[in-house]
Every structure is written in C-alpha cells, then in structure tokens.
Nucleic acid binder design. Structure first.
Lengths: 303, 303
DNA sequence: TTGTATGCGTTATCAG
DNA sequence: CTGATAACGCATACAA
C-alpha cells in the first residue's frame, strides 16, 4: 500500500489482474499474515428468530468495519459447540462472538487459543472479561412482578435445558416467586411447549411461564380453542404478533439492538489488540403485554 | 490413514499431541490439500425464520457427512451477495448453497470459480444445473385458489422487491387472479407490511396478500383491533401461531424439511466430483388455513 | 524503485 | 517402512 509503485504501473497491474480474473488466495494470505478479517458468531439455535435478528445486526455492524461474519450453529448441542469452538480458530478467524452452552471458563479455554478475541453473548461465564448480557434477575423479576400485579399465584413452568444458565436462572426465579403446579423441562423448542401443554389439560394454572419465545410459541400453537378463562402465557423475548392474540401474553424482552451493538463495540477493540475496553455489560429488559393481558388486568377501564 | 504406522506408535503420538495441545492449522492444510470440509450457505435474510430453520436442518445434515457449515447473510443486498460470493471461495470452501438475489447465470459465474460445487435454494437461475425450489406457480396458484373458493375478488397486494424472482412471480400470479385495489412494494420485512397496512385504513379489500411471512407479520402487527369483518391475510410460508389468530389467515407453505434435505442430497455428490446427480428439483406446496379462515369459509357448519 | 529468497504449517513425493 | 524435502500462494524482508 506504500507509494513504492508508480500510479501508471499500479494501473496496468490492476488491469491485467482483472483481465486474467486473478483472485488472491485468502487461505495463503491468512496463513502468512495471521489475519483473516473474519469474525465468527456461534449461536445455540439459529432457527430461533432471537438469534437470527442478532446475527443480522452483528453482521451489518461488522461489515461496516471491514470484517465479514461467518455464522455457526451449535443447535443446543454441547458436543457440537466444542467441535466448532476448536474448528473455527483452526480455520482462521480473528475473533469470536459466542452464545455459550458451556458454563465454565476452563472448558472454554481448553478449546480455543488463549489470545483469541472473544465476546460472550446472552450468557456470561464467570471470569471471562468481555460479555454482553441482559441482567437475568432483572429480566425474570420483571416478568414475575408483572404477573404478580394481576394476582397470579399458581403457575405451570415449562423451561429449557437447565444446564443452560439463562434457562436455569429464569426457572429459579419463577419458582421462588410462585407456587409451581407443574414443571416441564425440554429442549428450548416449540415442541417442548406443545407437549407440555397437552399434559396440562384439565389443569388451570393462573399462568404458564415459558423460559423462551419458542417454547411459548409451541404452547400457543397447542391451544386449540381459547376458552373463557385462558391462562396467561408468560415468556421471554418478543412473541410475534402477540397484540392480536386472544390469549393474555406478557413477555420480558431483551433489547436485541443493544445486545448486537454492544457485542461489536466490545469485540472491535480486542481485534485491534486493546483489551482495556473489555467489560461485562448488563442490559435491562422491559416488559411487554398484549391487549388481552391488559383487558384482563383492568377489566373495567384502563388505569 | 494407511496402515503404515503401528498401533502403539500411533497411540503414543496421539498422547503427545493432546498433551502438548497440538492443533493442526487447517488453513495450511486446506492450502495444501485444496479441501476444507466446509460448505457455505449464503441466504438473503437470516432474520427470516424460514431461512433460520432451513439453515439449521442443512447444518445438521452436512454435519452427518463430515462437513461443517458456515452461514452468511446477504441481507437482501445485491452488493453484499456479490461480495460474499467472491470472498467465500477465496477463503476455501468445498461447496456452496445459495439463495440468490441475482437473476442470471452470467452474473453468478463472474463471481465464483467455474468448478465450485453449487446448489441453488429457493430461487432457481436459468442454466444452473442444480437447484431445489418450490414450484412458484403451484405455490401461488394454490393460494389464489384457496382465496377464490371463499369468494375473494378484490385484494390488496404487498410484495417484496420485484427484482427477486420469487416475490415477482408470486405478485404476478396474484395480479392475474384478482382485482388489485392497492399495491405496495418494499423490503421483505415486517416494516413493509406495517407501513402498507396503515395506508389501507378505510379500505376494505377482501384479502391482503403478502409475498412472504415477514410482511404478513408486519400487517398482523399493525392491525390494532380485529373489526367485525377483518380482511383475510394471505401469505407464503407458515405464520407462527396462526391458529389462535382472530383474523382469517391462509398460507401457502413450502416443505422446509424437503428443501433442506434435497439441497444436501444435491450438493454431496458434487463434492465428490459426481455431477450426474444434478437436477432442478421442484417441490410442491400445501395450503394451511387457520380456524378463523375456516369459520369464515363455512359460517354455518363445517363441510 | 525493483527483484529475489525465505517462511507461514501442512501434505505429498521421493529417495533411502 | 521411514525420513528428508518440495510445494501450496502469499507477504515480507532484504539485496540489487
């Protein structure tokens, strides 16, 4: 890039290069320079729109800074996660954004090179200096408080794998806040919600709490008819089109835009070798209720 | 892999390797062997659950065959697509699954090496020998017939970018089938549906047709109150939790599992150098209606 | 300013 | 069967 080459020569070389269709081999270049201008994002479930949206935002932000993003999916499988974690640095990435399944710093460090820039997304790990998370207690308490305010006491709880910190913590706080009539655990997928709901027939909890959006979608899918006194559905992160639903729904929602942006803001300095910007960011959630919920809460007139 | 090394030696070497934490540099390996055991999937919008689910299924299938998947997002941006298309082969991939924005074989061939195994997903390109698509005419006609059967005549049409073949063809067939009261075009995102619906206030089309799921979600989000005679919402691919919606909805749905599986089935032989398995697969769609739609169609009693 | 040789980490090839 | 050496395509450092 230095001014060693005359403009004329530079021009001629470029012409020849495009004419011959020359494409530099980035493998060789990365091997030599130890730089790939590529960041990897490893998420636990790309079929979850929560991660889809985040991925899209992160890609956009990184692109503005000259990095391309490769997205990988561990599909909630710890072995798959470890596999990709080992594979990706070997294939040459400059940095990594990870929504981890694993819980310990030790397990993480066993897979990846010590100096690989990394930022954790959605799920922090004790000792890892760079992470972006929504305060899990605030997130869960907000949901419970909103439910408590409409006199919910007895709930059914359907939660994702308890080896995943977010699902575990969310479930814990719900259990502390309410009388648990029934409890189900399964993959954080619609099918878990569907299956659990079918086992609840005849029961009448005040609310059904799901530890993520997909589980809640499964429950809502399984509700055949909206009876006169449907249970409240409570979950985390926005349920699409919830406003029209004839079922009361409350969701404690993370700020997806802030999560994505903060990730990139943390990772970019690391890529430049500056570790001083590292921090464990805690974002706050806000609760969203749909019209059916608001009507149930204030049957006479809105307060 | 040959039996040149004795089992004992092999064992000792492996022990030493793991003890020293040796990780082969896959960049160097790929540079030397011209093989990366990696397939790229380039989609137009990873925030769309349609592609999220497909990506998840493809990843799973490829993994069983020893390939890892890197996912990239062109975000409906043609320049971004071209950028990734040039970048990915330079970074060493063995094959590519592409949901293209571009329309011509020529444009595609200008970006990628001539011999790169490639299978097109969702959107075919004339002349490209391997693709997996849902028959666009059957897909659209199915939707129109279902609407026609409940006496829909006048519709509002909200469609995605007309430079994308699927959106264009879907819109064309809808325009041939009904009287179009209003027509809107925008990115295939919820925001387009929301904005368009707000411009429809006071109008009463029999149905609002959206050329994809996300646009329909935007419309449904914008509907504040379900009036007594809500328009039918018609779209392509499954709308989550549509059964409970108090709005009549019909969706012409592609078989996501078959799309993903067929992609992999097409690509794997190519990776082995066998081009004879190439074909342009056309899948068929099926229509799904929700309860509100069925009630409206058969107000007295179900037939 | 230009050319040339060496190394990145691996696999493949060819003598030994 | 083993061990040394070249080559993959590029960037860098150094000599011309």
């Amino acid at each position: 890039m230095a001014r060693r080459i005359s403009a004329a020569t530079r021009q001629r070389v470029h012409e020849a290069a495009t004419k011959l269709g020359y494409r530099p081999n980035l493998l060789a270049r990365s091997l030599r320079t130890r730089k790939s201008n590529t960041v990897a994002l490893l998420v636990s479930d790309i079929a979850n729109p929560f991660f889809g949206k985040i991925a899209s935002l992160i890609e956009h932000a990184l692109h503005r800074h000259g990095y391309s993003l490769v997205l990988c999916n561990s599909a909630e499988d710890q072995d798959r996660e470890i596999e990709y974690l080992r594979l990706l640095p070997q294939k040459g990435i400059d940095g990594l954004i990870l929504a981890p399944l694993m819980k310990t710093k030790k397990t993480l460090e066993e897979q990846i090179p010590a100096n690989l820039p990394i930022t954790l997304l959605d799920r922090p790990i004790a000792g890892v200096p760079s992470s972006v998370t929504t305060d899990p207690d605030q997130l869960s308490n907000l949901l419970c408080e909103t439910l408590g305010r409409v006199l919910v006491r007895k709930v059914a709880l359907i939660h994702g794998p308890s080896h995943i910190s977010t699902h575990k913590r969310r479930a814990e706080i719900v259990e502390q806040s309410f009388t648990i009539l029934h409890k189900f655990e399964g993959p954080a997928q619609p099918e878990t919600g569907r299956a659990a709901f079918l086992k609840l027939v005849g029961q009448h909890p005040d609310a059904i709490v799901c530890t993520n959006q997909l589980i809640a979608q499964g429950v809502l899918d399984a509700i055949q008819e909206a009876d006169l006194n449907p249970p409240i559905i409570a979950c985390f992160d926005e349920v699409p089109m919830m406003h029209l639903m004839p079922i009361p729904i409350v969701a404690s929602c993370q700020d997806i835009g802030a999560l994505a942006e903060s990730c990139v803001t943390q990772l970019l300095p690391q890529l430049g070798g500056d570790l001083t910007k590292n921090q464990n960011v805690l974002l706050t959630a806000k609760a969203i209720t749909n019209r059916a919920f608001q009507k149930q809460a204030f049957p006479a007139k809105p307060m």
